[in-house]
Design a protein around this nucleic acid. Structure first.
Lengths: 259, 259
DNA sequence: CTACATTACTGGTCTGACCAGTAAAGGGGT
DNA sequence: ACCCCTTTACTGGTCAGACCAGTAATGTAG
């Protein structure tokens, strides 16, 4: 005879489950308001401390947003890619997942995004990509003039991120969009933490020019509806971007995807 | 003159940050024990309720594991892929992401996994793939005999899932592994929820044989170190698997990835 | 009809208490 | 010496009741 293992979950977990189920099954929509903590403690027959712990978990995982003083109660949030970014960063913090795996994953996602973007017929999305590529070219021209290194680097990062974001959006796949953004964000966070391998002065300008050129090439493939070329170009770009900061061994990990 | 926005974070968030930073910077290793809540409330100069809320968040995000009664205190955990699966499933639950997007994303991940698996030199992982393909073939042979439809379908699903899981594992990328597993799980959950389009009797047997054959072909490409072939084969397999249950329009979404 | 003070809540934090659970220290018996 | 079992002194989980700072909505004066 078989018995079911007795699951012994704490009260607050049961509350979390119920509310998550409500969101999942469409009984709670983003924008909806939950009852206040004092009401919830009655409906669940628990103390406020228990309700609070449940709310803390839901808040930390991005399910709801709480704000003190708002009589309308906690707000149910739509999904945001940031919710994915957190565990990704943590994954690389801990031993077990290396930075190169993150880069490999990004290479994979961005190249497939480019392929799909080149195959789409969404003209608005493709126009956005062109615009971003143009912005990068403009910045590259300005880079030669004496400008604050830090600001330049900052703006460079933002524009490049937007360019890739536009491509992911054009792919038409929200999962691809969200995971791509999360991985991109995670890599940015990691890079910001150890700011030793940052390019300086002339090297930064060269790097910027190269990226602008790469972006233009990739953009051409996309506008020309050339999926295979776009995929290859995207893979090349990402590889070149990280190449200098990787050991030979690490570069080998990326090689199969670049072809 | 520029001012910094005043960040007003709650006490418990500061505690979470400090402990997360400790893990990140290597001052806390997996397996280490945190002080008890009553000690922490003194070191952080807050009440136990506040400490508890911080611990709840750390527990929910998989950073620590708490167990009542253990005098050694909360344990710092290593990262587990399940931490990624949760937000992914939540994303697909929320409105906005369609099933075909999920399938497209899966197609994308599995094909790239196959490519990387074919490029690896990890013989153990490749042996596991072969074993799984063999299991599928065995089951396909048994399928002709009269057997419980439900059990057959169940075992079929499990074996197929294991086969793909083995490929993802062989890719050597934990991110690919975790996200692939999450997407696979999400699709299984969705399929289970609306169990109307399930194949019956002879159709099921035919489906099973086809899958076993497809798996064998893919396995051959991987064992032969043929990355491009493996990628193409994996894409074909996934496409064929879902083809019957998709409209023509939905099939068009997948087309660019199959080539 | 607008601008402002009021109000009646909200979530954030604290205190202090009790319970069930458990790892390790302590005590028998061999 | 060694093993087994009880005890013990903690642990986290939960509860109750209280105070504070903050805010949306309400009412009110101009």
């Amino acid at each position: 005879m078989k018995f079911e293992p007795v699951k012994k979950v704490s009260s607050y977990e049961l509350i979390v489950e119920q509310i998550e189920a409500g969101v999942r099954e469409g009984r709670l929509h983003p924008g909806d308001r939950l009852p206040g903590e004092r009401v919830l403690m009655q409906t669940f027959s628990v103390s406020r401390a228990t309700v609070r712990e449940a709310m803390r978990v839901l808040h930390a995982t991005g399910v709801v947003h709480t704000r003190a003083g708002d009589p309308r109660g906690p707000e149910v949030l739509p999904f945001r890619p940031e919710a994915l970014e957190r565990p990704l960063v943590r994954m690389t913090d801990q031993e077990g997942t290396t930075r190169v795996e993150l880069i490999q994953f990004r290479l994979l996602l961005e190249s497939q995004s480019a392929l799909l973007a080149a195959a789409t017929d969404n003209e608005d999305a493709k126009a956005k990509i062109s615009a971003c590529a143009g912005d990068l070219a403009t910045l590259a021209d300005r880079a030669t003039t004496a400008e604050s290194q830090t600001e330049l680097r900052e703006e460079f990062g933002v524009l490049l991120s937007e360019f890739h974001s536009a491509i992911r959006a054009a792919s038409g796949n929200q999962l691809l969009q969200a995971t791509g953004q999360a991985v991109d964000g995670a890599l940015t966070t990691i890079a910001r933490r150890r700011l030793g391998d940052e390019a300086d002065g002339p090297a930064l300008a060269a790097r910027l020019r190269q990226s602008a050129l790469d972006a233009a090439t990739l953009n051409n493939h996309i506008q020309a509806q050339d999926p295979i070329g776009a995929r290859q170009s995207a893979a090349d770009n990402i590889f070149r971007f990280y190449k200098d900061r990787l050991t030979d061994e690490e570069q080998q990990v990326l090689a199969p995807l670049v072809g």
